[in-house]
Design a protein around this nucleic acid. Structure first.
Lengths: 337, 337
DNA sequence: CTTGGCACTCGGGAACACAGAGTGCCAGAC
DNA sequence: GTCTGGCACTCTGTGTTCCCGAGTGCCAAG
């Protein structure tokens, strides 16, 4: 059913098609790869591969083109991730090492990835889920308003302005701040709701409305972290690639945070290097594009995901290598800081 | 030299070309606009307009197309900004009114503008120049590290992690925090450097290295505010428009914050509604595109600028109306909060 | 200054032919 | 059984030619 030569043929077709962007025929195939058999034999193999759905011809009497299923087999069994060159690795390292800030890390990463792969890069901000509270700050802005700031151990900051039910003075705010910090310091974000549940009861009655207001904002900001921030770069790289599907759809998808989130994240294993090819993609506007994504974060606790998006006809080994390498370096940087 | 009818002809050419996207000829012109003269007369006028550089023909025996100079004259003297419809105004109002946050305001604004004009919208975050310090916060992260947070009256937050020269305790940090706030509260960002200049001298000697470190970070963050953040939306709208110049260049320009800043901002009068047409543009990659921009901010103190970017062949009256209207509404929203 | 007439130009589309690449199939060789 | 060479067939893409129509510029007359 799938003997070795047929697989070799499929691999050759994918490689040639990716590099030339033209349907590849039997004759060209035996010339470029030394398969040791004649074109006619290859033709027979190709007929079988086509029947099985791994390749297709755009029209009669044209060469063959890999289908999504063909790419899938190629990625799963016929290729191996190509490691970066030493020069590239050094470039990554020095480029990322200069980052001063979590924002800076993310920005640099996304640019780096776009440049490295010459595709559209997408980086998700480190998620708060697995991070812990480092500090909660309440800053009075005026009598009826204060700013609530939540700082996590990943360097992420969530801030929010709170309108208060009634006037408060600095002392009450300070008290509440101290209580909140005592209660939450170092605890995981997911356990915050439990921790603060009984907080109002431990306060004097007159402070309870204030506490309730602030807590509701706190909890709300925890929920909202779900729709994480995402940064993209390298949209210009879309201009070169010729998409089978309209460019417009792709650009539209890139502006939909939710779509991007799902593309990057819809996997049980955050850390895995995942590839989603063309129609495997849930979003119809992105048929014709593939996504290569990986998780990043230090060791046990995965923080978030990053990846690139490009035409189905992409160089998977190289792209996967770049994505994996960048993910690793970012993890390293984040772990060190 | 420029009699009325020639101007009317130019206006008609611009309007027709914008709506049809095809070179417009003398015959079509007299049919669609009742100019009361014959095609031959129009031809004479067009010959003069061409000689003066307001219009051009793509090739012999084709209709005429406005040049950048022609659009310029049209915008300056032949058109008037078209106000939005009542429905549009209501939509803007309700859409912006829902914003909860400075980030939210900016995000909603940029989306709104993109949708309204069907072009690429660009919004600059409110600049800090004219804003004042509302609060400075120092949050110890551990012994050798603290987070520095600067909150302004526009709701903007700058945060930064500071590595300390030596270990500090909470008391010293609290003291410094109090001093900083006493010193800076309510003062304009531009005057911050003066205000803090003598601060170290007023501290006990052992606190001076700490203070110096923090102040240097503070001042640095003030300088960095120069390269303001910019948000864009509606890149998908580029797909429809056919650019004379490559789409790639435009997409590249959109990723260059600096370029965008210059496009929006290079004007002495922040509040003016400015139009930059095609080659008037400093950036070569954006020949073929025009920018319509306006300042926003409440009354006397202009905060920043926003605008849209589209093909030179755009409906200037409508676009200008939309940009102006959005700028006004945003100003309103910001003033209220 | 305007107008109608007229010759001229040029781009774009339709029709057509043709070369080239590629296929499928079949009969014969190993 | 599997591979191979040969052969007829089918497309696409390209180049050529031709022609129509829109549009122009110019000129002489109103």
């Amino acid at each position: 059913m799938v003997d070795d030569r047929k697989l070799a043929v499929l691999r050759a077709i994918v490689e040639d098609y990716v590099s030339t962007n033209e349907p590849v025929g039997s004759k060209a195939l035996v010339e470029r790869h030394n398969l040791g058999v004649s074109p006619a034999t290859i033709r027979n193999d190709m007929a079988v591969l086509e029947e099985q759905g791994y390749i297709a011809q755009p029209h009669t009497s044209a060469g063959r083109v890999p289908t999504d299923k063909g790419y899938r087999l190629f990625v799963d069994r016929l290729s191996q991730v190509k490691p970066l060159s030493g020069a590239e690795r050094r470039a990554i390292e020095s480029f990322l090492a200069g980052a001063v800030d979590i924002d800076d890390v993310v920005t640099r990463t996304v640019r780096l990835l776009a440049q490295l792969t010459r595709q559209v890069a997408v980086v998700q901000y480190p998620t708060l889920t697995s991070s812990t509270v480092r500090h909660v700050e309440l800053v009075p802005l005026n009598e009826r308003r204060l700013m609530f700031v939540l700082i996590t151990n990943t360097g992420r900051v969530e801030q929010r302005v709170v309108e208060l039910p009634d006037a408060v003075d600095e002392a009450r705010v300070a008290h509440l701040r101290a209580m909140l910090n005592a209660c939450l310091d170092g605890c995981g974000l997911t356990s915050v709701p439990d921790k603060v549940a009984d907080l109002p009861e431990r306060l004097p009655a007159e402070d309870r409305p204030l506490a309730a207001t602030i807590l509701s904002v706190l909890l709300e900001s925890l929920v909202e972290r779900q729709d994480e921030k995402i940064v993209i770069s390298g949209a210009a790289n879309l201009a070169g690639a010729d998409f089978t599907v309209g460019l417009r759809d792709v650009l539209e998808a890139l502006e939909e945070q939710v779509v991007l989130m799902r593309l990057l994240g819809e996997t049980s294993d955050l850390s895995a290097l995942t590839v989603r090819i063309g129609s495997e993609n849930p979003y119809t506007g992105l048929r014709g594009t593939s996504i290569v994504a990986a998780g990043y974060g230090s060791g046990d606790k995965q923080l978030a995901r990053l990846g690139v998006l490009g035409p189905t006809r992409m160089d998977y080994p190289v792209t996967m290598g770049a994505v994996r390498a960048v993910a690793r370096y970012v993890s390293q940087i984040l772990a060190a800081s």
